[in-house]
């Protein structure tokens, strides 16, 4: 998957959970990624974060620690 597409998809998830009440948005983003993203997609996301996470929402960067 192109990095741009991955970043776009991950940020979409973050945008939704950011609008939800509560202070566990990062956990919920992580849970969503764990539930629906296949391991190699999560790996690509983790790698992208490790390389600086260009373009990623902060919430995704936080969530990526626990996926």
């Amino acid at each position: 998957m192109s990095p741009e597409k991955m970043v776009h998809m991950a940020n979409q998830i973050a945008i939704f959970f950011k609008t939800q009440p509560g202070d566990d948005a990062a956990d919920r983003v992580a849970a969503h990624l764990r539930d629906f993203w296949e391991p190699r997609m999560r790996q690509q996301l983790r790698d992208h974060v490790a390389q600086g996470g260009a373009g990623l929402d902060d919430l995704v960067v936080q969530a990526a620690r626990s996926i």
Binding site: M1, S2, F36, W37, E38, P39
Partner: peptide
């Protein structure tokens, strides 16, 4: 126990060679 690839993800993974 891990989720698999969805159709668009399969196609992305195919282009990536996995």
């Amino acid at each position: 126990p891990e989720p698999g690839l969805r159709i668009p993800n399969m196609l992305d993974a195919a282009v990536d060679g996995t």
